[in-house]
Amino acid sequence: MTDTTAVVEVSGLTKRFGDVTALDDIDLTIPPGAITGLLGRNGAGKTTFMQTVTGQDFATAGEIRVFGENPVENAHVLSRISFIKESQKYPDEFKPKHVFTCAPWFYENWDADFAARLIDDFQLPVNRRIKKLSRGQLSAVGVIVGLASRAPLTFFDEPYLGLDAVARQIFYDRLLEDYAENPRTIILSTHLIDEVANILEHIVVIDRGRILMDESAEQARESATTVVGPRGAVDAFVANRRVLHREGVGGLASVTIERLDADERQDAVRAGLELAPVSLQQLIVRKTNATAADYAEQEA
């Protein structure tokens, strides 16, 4: 029997475009019924990952299981997926109202009232040609389809390019409200890490086509600490640890290191050092940079 708890399960997933390796032998399981953040730099492989998992593109190697089956050309799997992407194309002559007419034919959980409310929230002109919409309005079309479709597995790939802060907050609020009432598996890729830090339950970080981090949001937040104090004391404390980031002013140093257990934390406090939490965004920036440094060392 297959493992029915995984909504998305990939192993050895590799995707190459010519001599560029976008996904490099990835093994990953996305937890069901959670909001997972798929984070990473531009070109890290986030979009390629989502495109192969949704059958929009084809893997070079490896196995993909979505709802326990191969998603490629599989109507049983695909009809349960909503994949909203920044680059979504619409027929030239379409207006948003045409999109909202078509979408319910393909998503059995479509909620027309919810869609109408979202159109109102985002102040989307449904009778304007798609080509004439602003970038933010275009993003709103996708966001509305993604939310109102209530697909059991929903992907948002950079869904809010051009949306202002108010509209983004509406998106987060509606997403959380609706998710609470209609639990489903949501995978959200974004650059605005701090904005989404509070709604993510699971974090996956992709870098150079590989999984850099795959843990619960809580674990992720605890996975690093910043040690602040006099330079000498800090240096002594971090001497045998992997340093993710280092900065300093005058005689003070602030160094980000990996997880400390309770004893180590006490040691730090006894040494007169201060411990500060690391925001998700800082953590990811630092992990990505530290890994880049590791690569550079390997190559040197």
Binding site: T54, G55, Q56, E73, N74, A75, L78, S79, R80, I81, S82, F83, I84, K85, Q88, K89, Y90, P91, D92, F94, C102, A103, W105, F106, Y107, A151
Partner: peptide, 15 residues
């Protein structure tokens, strides 16, 4: 015009 739109609505290429 409609291929990528339809696939965006989770339609299979066959359908």
């Amino acid at each position: 015009l409609t291929f990528r739109f339809a696939l965006g609505l989770s339609v299979t290429r066959r359908d």
